[in-house]
Amino acid sequence: MKGTNLGEFEELVLLTIAVLLNDAYSVAICDELERQTKRSAKLGVVHAVLNRLEEKGYVKSKLGEATQTRGGKRKRYYTVTSAGKSALYKAKELRDQLWSMIPEFSLKAI
């Protein structure tokens, strides 16, 4: 398995999955991302990221029940694995650490 570090968009997607909890499937993730970030999230991109996250072992997926809405096609629901959770924590810790190291004046200077 290639690199296990988390990209920015990957992190967002992972967080969104966590936010949506039991309702996290591709279209819902896209919608939620758009709502939160106010920028458009293309299905193709999200799909590719989900696929990559699953490859890295941060999420796992299972097919849900068939519904009428999607032409009888089942949804694929994603949940964050513990590896995913720790990756999220790690990313947050890294940021917090960096935040804490910023001297007061340097932010003001910007």
């Binding site: 499937y25 591709s26 279209v27 299905l43 799909h47 696929n51 097919l63 809405t69 999607r70 032409g71 096609k73 089942r74 949804k75 694929r76």
Partner: peptide, 15 residues
């Protein structure tokens, strides 16, 4: 194994 999910997504967007 990717097909069903993908078809569904596209269909949902289509609607």
């Amino acid at each position: 194994d990717l097909l069903e999910d993908l078809e569904g997504d596209l269909y949902e967007y289509f609607l």
